[in-house]
Amino acid sequence: MTLYAIIFYLLAALIIISTGIAITRRNMVHVVIYLVFSFFGTAMLFYLLGAPLLALLQIIIYAGAVMVLFLFIIMMLRVEAPEISMFPFSQWVPAAALCAASVVLGLLLLIPESQLGKPLETAIATPSDFGFYLFKRHWLTIELVSILLLVALVGAFHLGKSKLSAKSEDPS
């Protein structure tokens, strides 16, 4: 077992434990904090798997921007935890069981692949290589994603504003 393997298992344990704690907390702020740990672990895993630019983006966008957005909404809405924090078992167990079955089937599909047991070689895609590849081969997708982000911005703005403007137009 090499040093890289030990680091991988430690990171996997960090991700699984922090996610597992996060999804069972009742206080929403604690949930978000534990998920930040989980996303930091994922960022380090990306670095281990040879994607340093994605590791940075994971920290900046996921652990930074998205989680802070969640924190803002949680603190703005002041949601009090309901006395029952989970649905009854009979409602969600079939959905979760179906999903677990499909995940297990997907993992079983991987078994016949011949070189599966071979450990992964370390490799690294430097940020400049990655950026050149991205803008050489996928420039159209980049443009589409930027349009998607713009549409999401306009949509969020409209959703947040519509109630106020309707109220100001209709004073009754």
């Binding site: 996997a12 999903c99 991987l110």
Partner: peptide
Amino acid sequence: MIVPFSHVMILSGIVFLMGVFCAVAR
């Protein structure tokens, strides 16, 4: 040499199932 690819996929599957639990049960 890191771990076999299947271990990465198993980690991903476990995290995905946790996400499903969080989405359908909470």
